[in-house]
Design a protein around this nucleic acid. Sequence first.
DNA 1: CAGAATCCCCTGCGATACTG
DNA 2: CAGTATCGCAGGGGATTCTG
Lengths: 132, 132
Amino acid sequence: MPWPKSTKAVRVPKANLHSANCPTRLILDDVMSRWGSLVLVLLLERSYRFSELAYLIGGVSEKMLSQTLRRLEVDGFVRREVHATKPPKVEYSLTPLGCELGKHVQSLLSFVHKNASRVLKNRDNAKEREAG
Amino acid sequence: MPWPKSTKAVRVPKANLHSANCPTRLILDDVMSRWGSLVLVLLLERSYRFSELAYLIGGVSEKMLSQTLRRLEVDGFVRREVHATKPPKVEYSLTPLGCELGKHVQSLLSFVHKNASRVLKNRDNAKEREAG
DNA sequence: CAGAATCCCCTGCGATACTG
DNA sequence: CAGTATCGCAGGGGATTCTG
């Protein structure tokens, strides 16, 4: 990774978010992950149990859901509450920080969802142009 | 993927964003990708050439950058302009749709970046608790 | 300069089976 | 119910080389 010696000419916009060793990227791996984002949006609405999340999020495996939740918990976005009832019951909810985060994620996902058909049309056009 | 037959009791929040076959997810693969999000934020500022992006985004390989840009272009978020100068020059910029998208992505990334230190601290605490 | 193509490794992730 | 543990493979992605 050759990086120029003259620090003068180097301009890194928006802080150092784009530099390879910026720790923010490690967090983005959790937040922007396929399942992480969906979990955050769901929990924004209300708290859910493990099996509820597994049901609501189509296509997720227990392994990935578990992993996703644990990472979000470690980051401090998600709170995990165990109720020692019978059968056991575990509730997941957002911390205040996770709630703030979730709002940003939701606005992004909503936008994409709203414009999905247009984007799909763009994809079709591109494929057509390539073929024709 | 067994889905209950009674559509009555099923409540899928926020449209069907969480269902496995929702096309929105395909788009999210591009938008929420490690490099895609960084590209979008950079291009929000101004247009860039390929090599500039490759330089600014630390750690990205030419292959991944190329792939990322092509996907965002196909989706209609990024515009690619070739200037047949010598040496050749290719400029990447955002379409209006991409610009809207970029704003959402930026607000998310900014938030994460702003709270990065707190999250890292949370991680350390979690690791400590696990060890202790 | 701006990529495409090839090779190849590594790991993310699903499937399955088992525990508290 | 709410997970862990183990296995196995497809494919994501880096390094390198080649083109216009």
